[in-house]
Computed example of a mutant assay.
Amino acid sequence: MDIQLTAIRRSELLNLPVIDIESKEEIGRVDQVWLDIKAHKVTGLTCTRKLLWQSGQRQSYFHWAQVEKIGTKAVLVNTKRQVNFNLSELVDSIACNELFTENDSKIGSTIGYQFETKTGSVISYLFVFQNSLCLPSGIYQLSPADVIGIDYTKVIAFETAIRSAEKYGSSIVEKITSTVEFFKEDYIPSTAL
Rank of each mutant, 00 (worst) to 15 (best):
L99D: 03
Q66C: 12
N78T: 11
G108N: 10
P136E: 11
Y140S: 01
S93A: 11
G71I: 08
K80P: 01
I139R: 05
I70C: 11
V122C: 04
K118N: 11
G112M: 02
T110H: 03
K118A: 13
S105G: 05
T110Y: 02
R81Q: 15
L126T: 00
Q130M: 09
C134H: 15
D104S: 14
D92T: 15
I111P: 01
I94Y: 07
Y113W: 07
V128W: 03
S121V: 08
Y125D: 01
S124V: 02
Y113H: 10
E102F: 02
Y113N: 05
T119D: 04
T72R: 15
Q114E: 07
T117F: 05
Q130V: 01
N86E: 15
N97D: 13
K73Q: 13
V122I: 13
V67Y: 04
V122K: 00
T110Q: 09
T119M: 03
V128K: 15
N86G: 07
E68L: 06
L133S: 05
N86T: 10
S93T: 14
Q141M: 07
L87R: 15
S93C: 06
G112A: 06
F127G: 03
Q82H: 12
K80C: 01
G138Q: 03
S105M: 13
V128H: 07
S132Q: 11
G120C: 10
G120Q: 08
L99H: 08
V91H: 04
P136D: 09
I123G: 03
Y125A: 00
K118L: 12
Q130R: 11
Q130L: 08
S88R: 11
E98D: 14
S109G: 08
V128S: 10
R81N: 14
E102Q: 12
Q82V: 14
P136T: 09
L99I: 07
Q114K: 07
N78C: 09
Q141F: 00
G120R: 06
E68H: 10
T110P: 03
L126D: 00
I107D: 04
T117D: 02
L133C: 02
L99E: 08
T101A: 07
A74N: 12
D92A: 14
S93W: 02
S124Y: 05
G71Q: 09
N131Q: 08
I123M: 02
V77T: 08
K106L: 13
V122H: 03
K80V: 12
V122Y: 00
